[in-house]
Design a protein around this nucleic acid. Structure first.
Ligand SMILES: [Zn+2]
Ligand SMILES: [Zn+2]
Ligand SMILES: [Zn+2]
Ligand SMILES: [Zn+2]
Lengths: 144, 144
DNA sequence: ATCTACTTGATATTCTGTATCAAGAACTAT
DNA sequence: ATAGTTCTTGATACAGAATATCAAGTAGAT
C-alpha cells in the first residue's frame, strides 16, 4: 500500500472527505523529488490543467502537514518546503544539489539532548533536526 | 567586550560603515530576550521614536545574519525569528512559554550524522538543530 | 575640507497567505 | 436511488511580508 492509499485511508478514518481537489493534490505531491511550497504546487497544478483554487491548496497542505503526512524542511536560505513523510518522529537529509530528501529516524539524539536538558534544567518537549549536503547520486553525477 | 562591540569591530574590519541606523538597531536587538522578526523590530524602533526605514531594518538584519551575529530560529508553528548569536557552529534551546533562548554547542551530533552519512553515502555539509521546551524559570513560575 | 563609495529611506510593487461566504459535492441514512 | 446534512471549495477581497528602485545623504579615507 503506497503513501497515497495510506493517506486516503487515514483521512477517511478521521472523517475527512475525499474530494477531487484533494485527490489531484495527493497525486501531484508524489511527483516532487525535492521540497516544494504551496505556491509551487499551485502553479504546477494549473500548468497541468488541474483547476484548483489557491485556498484549497493551502488548506490541503496544512491538513496533510497537521497529520504528519508532510514534513516541513527549511533551506539555509530561509524558506520552508514540504516533503512527503510518514507519521511519527523523523528527520531529513536534504541534498543541496538536487533537493532530494532522505528520511531517517536515528535518535541517539535524544541522549545528547537529555544530558543537556538535565544540566540546564530545561524541559525539552521536542526538537527539529535537519541535515543537508550532497546525495550519493549527485556525488557521482559530477565533480566535487 | 560585549556583543555589540564585537559586532561593530567585525563589521568595521569587513569594510562596512557604522551608521546611525545600524547603531540603533544593534542596541535594540539586545533588548530582546526572545526571538524577534524584522517587522517587530521595525515597530519597536518606531515606537521608541527612532526614525529608521523598513528596508534598512531588513537589510541590517540580513547583514548580521549573514555574518552569523544573528541566528535564525523557527517555531513549530512556522515563522522565523532572529536571535543574538556568535559566529561559529551552535544550536538553540527555545522556551515555548517565555521564548527565551539558550545557545549550546554540543555536537556529538556530528558522530550520529557521520555514521548515517557513511551508511547512506550522503555527504553531509551541515545541519540544523533546534530543541524547544520549557526553560527552568518557566517551570518554576507556574504549574506544569 | 573634499571626494567617493556605501547607505539610507520613501515609494511602488510583488508575493505569500488568510478571511469570507455562497455554491457545490461527499457521505449518510433512508 | 433519493434526499439531506455537513463539509469543501474557490472567486474575491484583503492583509502582511519582503524586495526593487533610485535620488539624496553620509561615513570614512585622503
Ligand atoms: Zn542530490
Ligand atoms: Zn529526533
Ligand atoms: Zn521560559
Ligand atoms: Zn551541530
Amino acid at each position: 500500500m503506497g503513501w497515497t492509499e495510506r493517506v486516503v485511508e487515514h483521512l477517511a478514518d478521521e472523517g475527512h472527505r475525499l474530494t477531487g481537489p484533494r485527490r489531484a493534490i495527493l497525486e501531484h505531491i508524489l511527483r516532487y523529488s525535492a521540497p516544494f511550497t504551496a505556491e509551487e504546487l499551485l502553479a504546477d497544478l494549473q500548468k497541468a490543467g488541474v483547476q484548483v483554487g489557491r485556498a484549497t491548496v493551502y488548506r490541503t497542505l496544512e491538513l496533510l502537514h497537521t497529520n504528519q503526512w508532510l514534513g516541513l524542511v527549511h533551506r539555509p536560505e530561509g524558506e520552508h518546503g514540504y516533503v512527503v513523510a510518514e507519521p511519527g518522529h523523523q528527520h531529513h537529509l536534504v541534498c543541496r544539489r538536487c533537493g532530494s530528501v532522505i528520511a531517517f529516524q536515528g535518535c541517539e539524539l535524544e541522549t545528547l539532548l537529555g544530558g543537556l536538558a538535565e544540566r540546564l534544567n530545561f524541559r525539552i518537549e521536542g526538537h527539529w533536526l535537519e541535515a543537508f549536503g550532497v546525495c550519493r547520486t549527485c556525488q557521482m553525477t559530477s565533480a566535487a
